[in-house]
Design a protein around this nucleic acid. Structure first.
Lengths: 202, 202
DNA sequence: GTCTATAGCTGGATAGAC
DNA sequence: GTCTATCCAGCTATAGAC
């Protein structure tokens, strides 16, 4: 148990777990309280309302999913080294919290305004836009083929993230157990890099 | 208005709209009734409960998303012609109902049991498994490179579906309006085929 | 700060008139 | 078959004792 930590943190940890699993609409304050091993009233004492609590969890989740992307995209490396690095570190990151992408994507779809609001306040992830320029530059210099930078970004993201978002579906259809699926995900680091390289090699 | 159609259909249409938008937990029977232009009591008269109504909508949605995939995967064509056909027809299909994939994926994540149950009753999409064998075969015959068929399937699916699932997020970050995004999606048909071909060409 | 008890509301479901 | 009125469970949120 994590009884040694203070109540505020206990609540946030529990809230993450429940919100990520059930979403805003499906989550119950009682479940969060149970998960934290405390009383329902404490949730309101510390965080006032369900919405406020959700906002904290959601913002942190966005930070993890998108922020991490920004970080890895902005490592100063030649593009041909950077792409495998992006793939590897992003997949590793997602594997640590495999349900986070689905949660973030779904809640953004539910409340696009909330997300757009957040974008305004905290800047538009300049690292990502910078990465796009880098692609164009590398194309002009002949390091890679000249491709649409947005399509390239979409391709990398799609190949890395989708298999986690669709995991229960794919696992069900193809009758794979968890061990098999994890192996496939591990293989993907190599596969994705191969696929992208095959496409952009000059 | 579709007042000429019978009430049962009106309800289903309305239920689709609301469930797909809000999910099972977020949808309100009142909203479905309003959308259908009828009374809340009628929903229960025709479909007994929210869960029953949801099941109908959900099953139809799965059928569209996965069933369509099975259909297109099983067209009798040489593999190198089939892949562009798959990509084109699947993207066109998704563009008609862009929120369906997110809905299906999210609800499967929420209730994997319900989905696995459905798989048992209606067979395991044999078309999809057949497609995997076809890939292996084409690899052995040297029509394409020998690649993992599951990875290939995952790649195609990822590249086609993810951009729709992540649309609000990507659009927000890259500051794109809907017209621009639709053009990008239109371009993708070509891009995806290029990417896959670059990877598997013998 | 933490708990119990409960207010107040929302939303799914039903009864019963027409 | 369709409506209004209403029930009742479940949920967020708060009051108040300790």
């Amino acid at each position: 148990m994590a009884q040694d930590r203070n109540t505020e943190e206990l609540i946030i940890e529990a809230a993450k777990k429940i919100f990520v699993k059930r979403g805003l609409a499906g989550a119950r304050m009682q479940d969060i309280a149970d998960e934290a091993g405390i009383n329902k009233a404490m949730l309101h004492y510390y965080y006032r309302s369900k919405d406020k609590l959700f906002e904290i969890v959601f913002n942190e989740a966005i930070g993890k999913v998108i922020g991490r992307l920004g970080t890895v995209l902005s490592q100063p490396m030649p593009i041909l080294e950077k792409i495998p690095a992006i793939v590897e570190s992003y997949i590793d990151g997602v594997m640590e919290a495999p349900y986070l992408p689905m949660f973030v994507l779904n809640e953004i779809n539910q409340q696009p305004e909330m997300f757009l609001q957040r974008l305004k306040t905290q800047g538009n992830f300049p690292n990502i836009l910078l990465f796009l320029k880098e692609i164009v530059e590398a194309g002009k210099q002949g390091q890679i083929k000249e491709v649409s930078p947005i399509q390239l970004l979409l391709n990398i993201l799609s190949l890395c993230v989708f298999p986690f978002v669709a995991r229960p579906m794919v696992q069900g259809i193809l009758q794979l157990d968890s061990v098999q699926y994890n192996m496939i995900m591990e293989d993907r680091k190599k596969v994705i890099t191969e696929v992208i390289f095959a496409w952009i090699k000059a």
